[in-house]
Design a protein around this nucleic acid. Structure first.
Lengths: 253, 253
DNA sequence: CGCATGCTTGACTGAACTCAAAGTCCGTGG
DNA sequence: CCACGGACTTTGAGTTCAGTCAAGCATGCG
């Protein structure tokens, strides 16, 4: 059985890899080129230094492992090469708040730049492959400037906007509307990654979705069931099929 | 009657200036030094180019005026020198969502960097004075790098963390807890700006607070009244006095 | 096989929303 | 100066949506 994570692009639909661990483990600490980072981040600026043959360390994670811990000293940014993760914040009262579900092309760890330590918890939902952009290469000694820094900042501004959207998402009036909008956003993200926007498998639990949208897991479950019964989507555990994009979009109000 | 905005630091308590317009209007388009920007942003890095005598344009706004419009092409970042503002996003369904209330030292407009156009609406709640960091100076032509860019990105990473906190804030269990936490955060911000953390005047309406916390304005009003009756705070319109920080903190759960 | 985790569904409850009315403050214009 | 209008706020009463509690089922793992 092959691992879908490393399958050819654009399979029928995206499936998390956690349930299908690779039978032949690949050697750890493989490398990634600056070109690959640029592609993943969808950096639009032109590459100035075509001779930059720098290679970056990669970091493999198994589902459930922590990528970053809150309070850990900042040592760099990470680009998601493959897999899905969950970033969360521990509240004053001890409660956890899910901020986002980073996937391929997303940037991790930029919240750690300001205080030089990570302020969020990041855990892998599926087996993951991250590319590390070390702090010392990002912020080249004092005065000089490098292209990697530019790329990172461009990506950060993109992530900031996405976070604002997620923030706004959790302020919709009705719980069903939030869930519908969440599914639309996921659909769009899968499409951007080259997978089917109509059929995909969610990597996170109902509890995580609920926490992200500020509703309970039961409410998420009921919303899924409701949309299923109405024929808008088809739900089987974490497998989602959107039967009518238009109808789903109509629920976003 | 003098305008408290321009009074000496650390007055008894902070008051918005909108109700007390300066009797002697100052000439428009005054300048601000790089040093002032550095101080406002609390930039911790050392200043490399001490000879940088650049002056930045300032922009005065009256209460109610828009600082940035959604969709407007990106032309730079703005540092709040004085005053209070409101940043909001228009949802898919047309509803408005209040993201933050920027005040002295906060940075505006960084959501516009990615798509080269601003994605949020920014309106002045009081008379304001902003310092403009023009786009062409920020992103110096292609390859070279300047210190201003460094400062801007340092500030952005700080704003990102604050936004995450605001996001998490709107996920507290009870509405009263959200309001209590909101007051604590405001208190801390006033303290950081050199004003009293115990006595201050909120620059925004109940509706804005409610929108920010994802509750209705009536709920905010009821929470204020409740905390007032309990003797935790004293409320008179928008004037807030925190009678017991400990008691207020206890409501944050 | 048994246990843990995750998901679904139902019944009940309660916190927050909606609708409504009245009061307060402020700027404006007569 | 004062009266007016509008925006903001407070408070009350009724309603509803989503949270809580609980039971049962499916899945996957040791």
């Amino acid at each position: 059985m092959m691992n879908l994570q490393f399958a050819t692009p654009a399979p029928l639909h995206w499936t998390p890899s956690s349930r299908r661990p690779s039978p032949k483990p690949e050697r750890d600490g493989r490398l990634a080129s600056l070109q690959e980072v640029k592609t993943l981040l969808q950096y639009v600026g032109q590459v100035h230094d075509l001779n930059d043959m720098r290679q970056f360390q990669r970091r493999r994670l198994k589902a459930g492992q922590h990528a970053l811990h809150m309070g850990q000293p900042f040592d760099g940014l990470y680009v998601v090469r493959v897999g899905a993760l969950k970033t969360s914040m521990t509240q004053v009262d001890g409660g956890e708040h899910v901020l986002a579900f980073p996937m391929k092309g997303n940037l991790l760890g930029f919240d750690g730049m300001y205080k030089k330590q990570y302020l969020t918890e990041v855990v892998a939902l599926t087996d993951c492959d991250l590319i590390k952009l070390p702090a010392n290469e990002l912020f080249a000694h004092g005065w000089s400037c490098n292209e990697l820094e530019r790329m990172a900042y461009s990506a950060i501004s993109r992530e900031v906007v996405q976070e604002q959207m997620a923030y706004a998402l959790s302020h919709s009036a009705k719980s069903e509307a939030r869930v519908a909008r969440f599914l639309m956003i996921q659909s769009q993200r899968f499409a951007e990654m080259g997978y089917s926007p109509r059929r995909f498998t969610l990597p996170m639990t109902r509890r995580d979705i609920g926490n992200h949208l500020n509703v309970t897991l039961e409410t998420v479950s009921r919303a899924f069931s409701s949309l299923d019964h109405l024929g808008v989507i088809s739900v089987d555990r974490r497998e989602i099929e959107i039967l009518s994009m238009e109808a789903l979009h109509a629920f976003e109000s």
